[in-house]
Design a protein around this nucleic acid. Structure first.
Lengths: 229, 229
DNA sequence: TGGCAAATACTCCATCGCGAGTAATCGACA
DNA sequence: TGTCGATTACTCGCGATGGAGTATTTGCCA
């Protein structure tokens, strides 16, 4: 089980709205959008309505009234319960205090990058750097706009954080791309040679059967790990 | 649609194994574990088998033979197809070249931190810093161990990246915690006052109905956004 | 040689997440 | 007065996800 009765962070955002006052789901969604929360918490209708239902099932919110204007679909207004308030506080505290392991797509890519030739990888990483810069610019523009409107940093802190992390990634990727191109990254020479051999028709299985022959000393890393003495 | 015929990054790892030689699913899982890929790509059996099935359905891999030793469950050996090889290369290229927006739990927490009083948040962030440091130490120990075994950085790069990102987060959180405690973060004063009022029994709805009265000039940020001239 | 833990090799299924689809209403312009 | 796009307010269903469960075999130690 996933620790929290409702695990989607959107549920936390829902609770945060209902702490202010009772609302119906659609109003919650527009409120979150207005405040820019959807940039830090994924929001889509499918999840919203199922999350609201789950919150109700667990007694964290209560349906108050269902009204209808004309023959539109009815709007059910929900209010937070004491249990919901407690869940909000303890969940938020956990989010802030406890890092969770998140698997990013770049980590996945890096861990398998040996599957493409070094020159190609260096180029791809170069492209990534450009896109990261563009993204930073976008977020910074947003941030500047909001500050100009008088929004205090308290409500913008997640964007400040986002920019910091994008910058850190950009620096790392820039450096890595350089290190691959210059072969400063240990292992790059053998990596390049493997791909040359493959391009020339040698199969991967042949190379890994006798890496020392094909790659010299650098090929030793492909051998089964030495038994620790 | 999710762009790729099979969207789970585990599928990419599966393809990377089958490029080396045909394997059965369980062997894929042990291979990935041995190489430490499970630290950068989430691996569990449920996903593994459904991903393998999906890859086969889309013609990216082929079942070769199903053997059985004794009366154990049968092992189906899969081989990669040309389409699978192509998918591997194009997917990996995309992962490396194109940042995707990933919603982290800290971003969610930061965007809602106003829901807890500033002092509490500063403490929680302090706790987080300690845990981040412990995590960095763990990953660094792993890294040092692997390097000693002669594994070149090429195969460890995702851990180097991970450490960099953890460090960047640690720096940000350290600074933020300090800025909250010192009220250097714009908005902190009003934030604290709101929570004092709530603790004293004032409802949130009263405060947001007339923020200027309760919070002075700083309360202006709670008013509906001024119409842009 | 008896027994027990670890490794092998999956299977099952309840829950979740997602985005496309729907259907009514409102505003505004011509 | 007609209509066309935007907004309001949800519904539906399929596929992914994850982790507990199962059943066999092997290794090992007493």
């Amino acid at each position: 089980m996933t620790r929290r009765p409702v695990s989607n962070p959107l549920a936390l955002a829902v609770l945060s709205c209902l702490i202010e006052r009772p609302m119906h789901p659609y109003e919650i969604s527009t409120t979150l959008r207005e405040r820019g929360k959807e940039h830090s918490i994924k929001l889509n209708y499918g999840s919203l309505y199922s999350v609201v239902e789950a919150l109700q099932k667990h007694g964290l919110i209560n349906a108050q009234e269902t009204t209808r204007a004309g023959r539109r679909p009815e709007r059910t207004v929900y209010a937070i319960t004491d249990a919901g308030q407690a869940e909000f506080e303890s969940w938020l505290a956990e989010l802030l205090s406890t890092p969770v392991r998140e698997y990013t797509s770049l980590e996945a890519g890096l861990s398998l990058m040996g599957g493409l030739p070094p020159g190609v990888v260096a180029d791809l990483l170069g492209t990534r750097v450009e896109k990261l810069r563009a993204e930073v610019d976008t977020v910074e523009a947003m941030l500047a706009g909001a500050r100009e409107q008088g929004v205090p940093d308290l409500f913008l802190i997640e964007s400040v954080f986002r920019i910091r992390m994008l910058r850190a990634e950009e620096e790392f990727v820039t450096q890595l791309s350089r290190d691959i191109r210059s072969s400063a990254l240990p292992g790059t020479k053998a990596w390049g040679r493997v791909h040359e051999l493959i391009a020339a028709g040698t199969s991967f299985e042949e190379i890994s059967a006798d890496p020392l022959r094909y790659l010299g000393e650098e090929g030793r890393a492909l051998l089964p790990p030495e038994p620790s003495s």
